[in-house]
């Protein structure tokens, strides 16, 4: 039996698509790891002595073998304390402080339970507009990235040869990891009044565009920034579709487009949802891009939160507003989990 198939046995994704091509990318790698297997660790003699000879540890080891949960707990203890004590506790603290208030004179936090912050948010329609703008642009960016990701993912997986494919993968990864601020700043230089875009338009005799510092600018820049986060999971999802299914569809007389619509699109849905988690969440939680390429009156939820923490020091009010993206994302994640996106994340 193919060793890669055995390795796949415990993977929860394998119940979704039982396809022989699932591990095709990783197979040679894992074989390589096998080949270079258990060698070269002998250098750490004192550590090895400590680890293998210390009696209490030895006892823990055998106990964890007999009682599986002991092993799980002793491994999980440190990460769980860290994660629960800092991250989850912090999310909880944010929830709690959203009901606190601030002393007008001293600026001190007053613990308690009051709905003042939430009432203030509902009373002023500006906050509703800002939330609408944020969620609207996040949705538009997600859709744009899905449309742009498909040709790249399809060409990379189904049309390109191995060398071209590796090159394309690198070309997607480099902008993904190269400085976020650098890329936003580049667009500020491109879209500004006397920037590259208007210069190029003037060169070919077209009138200049004034989309710098607007919602259009934010839509373009966010779509640009997060596109690689959509391409990667969509490509991974396309790769998991067995070619035989596409051939079967063609044999049954389906045109290329209807094969795409009725076979590829539904089968790649988990990948698209996984990408959408990234693009939607990253847009929803941004305030730097609106500050740098959005104009006056293009605030996002993040800008309000940021200025209330950093400038006016009203942490409870900021926490109350931040509860909104928390709820939006929680809903999104629960739906995404149902659609199997977590295996594709």
């Amino acid at each position: 039996m193919d060793p890669a198939r055995v390795w796949e046995r415990d993977a929860p994704t394998s119940k979704l698509v039982e396809s022989p091509c699932r591990a095709s990318l990783s197979q040679t790698r894992t074989n390589g790891v096998w080949a270079s297997g258990p060698v070269g660790v002998e250098g750490a003699k004192p550590l090895a002595f400590f680890l293998t000879m210390s009696a209490p540890l030895r006892a823990l080891s055998s106990l964890s073998w007999r009682r599986g949960w002991v092993g799980v707990l002793s491994l999980l203890a440190l990460p769980a304390v860290w994660f629960g004590g800092l991250y989850l506790a912090a999310i909880g603290a944010m929830f709690l402080t959203s009901f606190w208030t601030v002393d007008d004179f001293s600026g001190d936090l007053i613990p308690g339970f009051s709905l003042v912050n939430f009432r203030a948010l509902l009373a002023d329609p500006t906050y509703a507009h800002i939330a609408e703008r944020t969620i609207g642009i996040a949705a538009a960016v997600t859709l744009t990235d899905i449309v742009l990701a498909w040709p790249v993912a399809f060409a990379m997986v189904r049309l390109a040869g191995p060398r071209l494919r590796a090159g394309m993968m690198a070309a997607v990864l480099i902008p993904l990891w190269s400085s976020y601020l650098a890329r936003v700043y580049a667009w500020r230089l491109i879209l500004s009044h006397d920037g590259v875009l208007n210069w190029a338009l003037a060169e070919v005799g077209l009138p200049g565009l004034h989309i710098g510092y607007s919602n259009w600018a934010m839509w373009i820049v966010f779509s640009y920034l997060w596109l690689p986060f959509m391409i990667l999971p969509v490509a991974a999802a396309v790769e998991r579709i067995p070619p035989s299914l596409l051939e079967a569809s063609a044999d049954l007389g389906a045109h290329g487009l209807s094969t795409f619509r009725r076979v590829m699109l539904p089968m790649a849905l988990p990948g698209m949802v996984a990408g959408a988690i990234s693009t939607f969440s990253l847009t929803l939680g941004d305030y730097v891009t609106p500050m740098l390429v959005g104009g006056e009156g293009s605030d996002f939820i993040g800008n309000v939160v940021y200025s209330n923490v950093g400038v006016t020091n009203n942490i409870p009010f900021a926490a109350a507003y931040a509860v909104l993206p928390l709820c939006v994302m929680a809903g999104f994640l629960l739906v995404a989990r149902k659609l199997g996106a977590f295996d594709a994340l």
Binding site: L86, Y87, A89, A90, I91, A93, M94, T97, L109, I277, S281, L282, L284, G285, D286, Y287, I301, G302, V305, Y306, V309, I315, A318, A319, A322, P325, L326, M329, L333, L345
Partner: peptide, 16 residues
């Protein structure tokens, strides 16, 4: 998976 502003905001209010 959660927006960065949430992590930042949550940690800020936690430390505060």
């Amino acid at each position: 998976a959660l927006p960065g502003i949430l992590t930042g905001m949550a940690l800020a209010s936690y430390f505060a």
